[in-house]
């Protein structure tokens, strides 16, 4: 279907973009990669009055790593740039992996990691592990910049804390402390290239065989990517034996609140939550040891 008619704006600076966003008001949408926005428009679900493209704003691009401050992923950094960036691969392997698992080659060459978060699909590949790692959204608005941890960022399917007039400028991922490891696990019916039916991100801190800290985030089993806090409490202070991992899986599947939709049934999603939580904890613990 042809796209609806809209005004196209391509500011060169963040200030200009914020000003345009304020001026144009309701019905104005931001365009980073466009891979979600254009699909919605093509299917007639969205008819924006104006579209503000962010690609020309140099300050929003790029990926920066600082061993002290962590990783900054700019709003227009492509999924492929995240997946193939040497620093991301070296220091944040699960972030690179999740980006690599998002959609297909072409979409990763157009779509952005920030856009994947702003689209706020419950199944967003990049949300669980970033949330587990304590990443935060850097948001610019008329009143300046604010930072929101990702576990408070999502409000519902397609909804985030970003207010009208605000722009997500970057995602900040803190340095993974020594003794910590991460993992991203997902399952989908087509096997290799697919939207996740269930996904799990985990970060654990290990002291020998004992898990001293754990953050577990479940995707596609609730309206937003959700922390499995009871599961985190269950594994904290325990050795991650096969029995504990199985218990943790059961606990996570109890915490999950999935629906049945065309991608999977609720029962299957619960079961996969258990399987993937166990696998994620195991892999994260192994990563912590290395």
């Amino acid at each position: 279907m042809p796209l609806p008619k809209f005004e196209y704006l391509s500011p060169k600076s963040l200030e200009e973009a914020l000003q345009l966003l304020a001026d144009r008001g309701e019905g104005t949408h931001l365009l980073a990669g466009g891979t979600d926005l254009l699909v919605k428009m093509a299917h007639g679900h969205l008819k924006p009055r104006a579209v503000i493209a962010l690609k020309q704003i140099d300050a929003l691009g790029g990926i920066r790593f600082d061993p002290g401050k962590g990783l900054f992923i700019g709003a227009t950094a492509l999924l492929d740039e995240v997946a193939s960036h040497p620093d991301v691969k070296a220091h944040f392997p699960s972030v690179a992996y999740a980006a690599q698992q998002t959609a297909n080659v072409q979409i990763r060459n157009m779509g952005t990691l920030a856009g994947n978060l702003c689209n706020a699909a419950p199944s967003a590949d990049n949300a669980p592990v970033l949330t587990a790692m304590g990443a935060e959204a850097v948001i610019a608005g008329p009143k300046g910049e604010r930072r929101v941890a990702l576990d408070r960022f999502f409000k519902g399917p397609g909804q985030t804390v970003i207010e009208p007039g605000e722009i997500l400028t970057a995602v900040h991922v803190p340095v993974i402390p020594s003794g910590f490891g991460t993992s991203y696990q997902h399952v989908s019916p087509r096997g290799k290239v697919d939207i996740a039916a269930v996904c799990v991100g985990a970060m654990v801190g290990m002291d020998g065989a004992t898990c001293k800290e754990a953050r577990i985030v479940l995707g596609a089993v609730a309206p937003v990517p959700m922390r499995a806090e009871k599961t985190e409490a269950l594994v904290r202070g325990k050795a991650l034996t096969p029995e504990i991992l199985e218990k943790a899986g059961r606990q996570a599947s109890e915490e999950a609140r999935p629906i049945s939709d065309m991608r999977a049934g609720a029962e299957y999603r619960k079961r996969m939550t258990a399987v993937l939580t166990g696998r994620a904890l195991k892999q994260a613990a192994e990563a912590a040891a290395n």
Partner: peptide, 10 residues
């Protein structure tokens, strides 16, 4: 890239 999801203006 997918040319169907790329705005010419962009």
């Amino acid at each position: 890239v997918s040319s169907c999801l790329t705005l010419a203006a962009s």
